[in-house]
């Protein structure tokens, strides 16, 4: 009897969604194991000196040098609804005064700047050393995004050249921990897709039910010409002795 289900079958049917959830958890765990933070941190370093222009600069994030957030594992934990204070202190190479007019902070997502903040001075700051003070309030993105982001703090000369830049990471916390639009949307979408995977077995029955049960097609009329493939009624005299 095909409709009689044993207890083992019922138990397997109950455990199928759990198996799917287990696969999702394993995928997330494997994803965490391949986090690129350590490799990128080794490439960043913490020298504070631009190799090409010899500019010695220090950027602080709420009083802490951004060098200490150079890897994903040591990212600054930040509440994006709060104001953030950055200070750029720089000094040029000995005997070579600089002319800087722009301190820039960029937050990247998929390689594109998600947010850019600039502090500029008209004519630039000329001299052997100087500083820029930036206050950044991310604003509305705090209610859209959370998670780990790479930022770049850079100093630009009057002619537009980037004379110093430093990459670091921040872990942005949404209001109340989870109250951001994108993670909520992703969680809902993930639950729906897990439900879709768990119900995918029922798709095996659909082709049989969807097969049309109409009448057979009528036979071709004797006077009709050949079909598109040339397999119609043979011409008179063809095929005879």
């Amino acid at each position: 009897m095909g409709t009689v289900r044993t207890s083992a079958e019922r138990a397997r049917r109950r455990t199928a969604p759990l198996a799917v959830l287990l696969v999702v958890v394993l995928l997330l765990g494997a994803a965490g194991a391949f986090a690129p933070g350590a490799a990128r941190a080794a490439a960043i370093g913490c020298s504070n000196v631009s190799a090409k222009y010899g500019v010695n600069a220090t950027v602080t994030w709420n009083g802490v040098n951004v060098c200490s957030g150079g890897s994903a594992s040591s990212a600054f934990s930040v509440d994006l609804t709060q104001s953030i204070g950055l200070r750029y202190n720089w000094s040029g190479p000995l005997g070579h005064p600089l002319s800087l007019n722009d301190a820039r902070l960029q937050m990247f997502y998929f390689g594109f700047p998600l947010a850019t903040r600039d502090v500029t001075t008209v004519g630039g700051v000329q001299g052997p050393s100087g500083s820029f003070v930036m206050n950044w309030t991310p604003g509305v993105i705090a209610y859209v995004l959370e998670g780990l982001y790479g930022l770049t703090a850079s100093l630009l000369a009057t002619n537009g050249t980037t004379v110093f830049s430093e990459d670091f990471f921040v872990h942005a916390n949404a209001p109340y921990g989870i109250l951001a639009a994108l993670p909520i949307l992703l969680v809902v979408l993930g639950i729906y897709e897990v439900y879709n995977v768990a119900r995918s077995g029922r798709q095996a029955a659909l082709p049989k039910r969807a097969a049309p049960a109409g009448p057979p097609p009528p036979p071709p009329e004797p006077g009709a010409g050949p079909g598109p493939d040339g397999a119609g009624t043979p011409p008179p005299g063809a095929g005879g002795p």
Binding site: G32, G111, G147
Partner: peptide, 13 residues
């Protein structure tokens, strides 16, 4: 979702 939960960064394209 892993990026949003802070497991890794998607800053590089």
């Amino acid at each position: 979702l892993a990026q949003q939960l802070g497991l890794w960064s998607l800053s590089d394209l």
